[in-house]
Design a protein around this nucleic acid. Structure first.
Length: 522
RNA sequence: GCGGACAUAGUGUAGUGGUUAGCACGCAAGCUUCCCAAGCUUGCUACCCGGGUUCGAAUCCCGGUGUCCGCACCA
């Protein structure tokens, strides 16, 4: 499906729609409807269950979304997250100072401050590229962060956080105590980040307010040995930087063991890369042959990233591989910068033998992007001939159907209970629905339209199970249970529905690492 | 930000100076003992916003906003 088709389906079914639509919209802002939010919440739950589940010393926290200026000064966002914008006083044309200078052959403009760029512009006295007048303004820093007036006097500066990660670094000292001074220490955050993007695009792909799910793992660089044997044979579709330089465009599948053999990728990195891959493949159900692990070269990655693989997934709606997650080995850059900036010593000495700054491994995921990915990869249009599921009834099928073949544990509604005939079976349907709700299952009871149409609607929003209440139910308490993907039906007592479906409603967790059996905490 | 294209019910569209603004799907109410978007009846909803030209603008012009495609951007 193309972007626009997906968006119109999203709008129609209450998944996602443009924010402030009645005022003409606001670029880069989207609202989640009940269906989209349901998927998003389940995705977040599945993410936390998987990644926080990697170690008993990993925790989910929720830091503030507003950060004081000192934080972004230390993190480097104030300096590097900005462009120098010049405007032509004559025609109003906007351009970037560095681009203008580069086009005129002024060699090295990278990293120059707006002031320095302004001096260069003045020296060269460049004309406006559109109208030719020499009326360009002094460069104005355009920062991708949203600045806020903070405090009663409005004199203090603060920003909406441009990434969630900073919250983990800021919380490290506190969490070191809360987590009883253990390494590795994992701090996971799921939350909004804000960037004043120049050109928001592709609905959920580049938004100005978006949700990230990130796990920052703090560890001792000389002693970080997660159970590598659990991933040793995992097949990783890697596109290495060196191979790309040599012209490769397709990933080459190597095992985790092979990846670490050359010595440039440490086992702890390969371990987490493999688990990230598994999350996409085994939890989100993305087809393995659409995922690649693309290594960024020195130029592409941030200077503090020592190893950087993007996890990319091929999405038809967007015409190719898109970054849906990444694994960054950031060294001690973050704690070192915040240690200096705040004057707080963030080094640790867990064994009493050496004092050091923990290193950081960052696993990062775009939540909204993956909601889009789940739609792109799991929404299907089935034509009657291609759906063999209903067997003998196949010839009676009419048009194609759209189904969202989400993994069951990611579906917003888990079971739909349908009265076959509204007047006669609604009461019983409600009773059965209530019984399921009491067991923690998310249930809808659609009443309007024919039963076939109701199946179709539920298919489209990804509901994995439908239970139909008919005349026989009133007599013997049995119902038909219909599965979304196969459309297969079976008859069973209503009381057995929960036990039949429950197992499929729980997202997979990573295999539990072997923890040394310390004395059980009383 | 730049360039190009586009903007009509919930969705997809027809209409290109004067139309009761059409169609399909959808949605809602009713009928139908109804297990895969059936049928019948009835009903619902639209010209992105602001200016201008004109006797008259959904239609032409300008500006804005938004979307898509390229470029640029994405520490």
């Amino acid at each position: 499906m193309q972007t626009e088709e997906l968006l119109s389906l999203f709008k129609r079914r209450g998944v996602v729609w443009p924010s402030a639509e009645i005022y003409g919209g606001a670029a880069g802002l989207y609202d989640y409807g009940p269906v989209g939010l349901g998927v998003k919440h389940r995705l977040e739950e599945a993410w936390a269950s998987w990644f926080v589940g990697l170690s008993p010393n990993y925790y989910l926290i929720e830091p503030a979304e507003i950060v004081p200026e000192a934080v972004v000064r230390s993190s480097g966002h104030l300096e590097h997250f900005a462009d120098a914008d010049v405007a032509c006083a004559k025609c109003g044309h906007h351009a970037r100072a560095d681009t203008l200078l580069e086009e005129k052959g002024v060699a090295d403009v990278e990293g120059l401050s707006p002031e320095a760029l302004g001096r260069l512009l003045q020296e060269k006295n460049l004309p406006c590229p559109r109208c030719g007048e020499r009326a360009l303004s002094v460069p104005r820093p355009f920062n991708l962060m949203f600045a806020l007036d903070f405090g009663a006097a409005g004199k203090e500066k603060a920003y909406l956080r441009p990434e969630t990660a900073q919250g983990a670094y800021l919380s490290f000292a506190r969490m070191w105590d809360v987590g009883r001074k253990q390494l590795p220490l994992g701090i996971a955050i799921i939350g909004k980040a804000y960037r004043n993007e120049i050109a928001p695009r592709n609905v959920l792909f580049r938004m100005r307010a978006f949700t990230q799910a990130e796990l920052q793992i703090f560890f001792d660089p000389e002693d970080f040995t997660p159970p590598f044997d659990r991933v040793a044979d995992e097949k990783l579709p890697c596109l290495r930087a060196a191979d790309r330089a040599a012209g490769a465009v397709e990933p080459r599948v190597v095992t985790a063991t092979e990846l670490v053999q050359k010595g440039d990728i440490p086992p702890f990195y390969a371990y987490h890369l493999a688990h990230s891959l598994r999350f996409f493949r085994d939890v989100l159900g993305y087809p393995a042959d659409r995922i690649r692990l693309l290594e960024k070269n020195e130029k592409e990655r941030a200077f503090y990233n020592r190893i950087h693989f993007d996890i990319e997934v091929k999405l038809d709606s967007l015409g190719g591989y898109k970054e849906l997650g990444a694994v960054h080995y950031r060294g001690d850059y973050d704690l070192s910068r915040h240690g200096e900036g705040s004057g707080t010593d963030l080094s640790v000495n867990p064994s009493g033998k050496k004092k050091f700054l923990p290193h950081v491994l960052e696993l990062t995921f775009g939540v909204d992007r993956n909601v889009w990915g789940l739609a792109d990869l799991h929404l299907k249009t089935e034509t009657p001939s291609s759906s063999a599921g209903a067997g003998a009834e196949a010839e009676e099928e009419k048009g194609p159907r759209t189904l969202w073949a989400l993994p069951s544990y990611l579906a917003p509604t888990q079971v739909a209970v349908l009265p076959l005939i509204r007047k006669m079976h609604s009461e019983k349907a409600e009773e059965i629905a209530e019984g399921l709700r009491e067991q923690g299952i998310s249930v809808a009871v659609p009443l309007t339209a024919s039963v076939g149409k109701r199946y179709a609607r539920e298919d489209e929003v990804g509901t994995p199970f439908a239970v139909t209440v008919d005349a026989q139910t009133l007599q013997d308490g049995t119902v038909t249970l219909r599965e979304r993907d196969s459309r297969a039906q079976s008859r069973l007592p209503a009381a057995e529905i929960a036990s039949r479906v429950r197992r499929q409603l729980v997202p997979p967790r990573p295999p539990r690492p072997a923890v040394p059996q310390a004395a059980a905490t009383p």
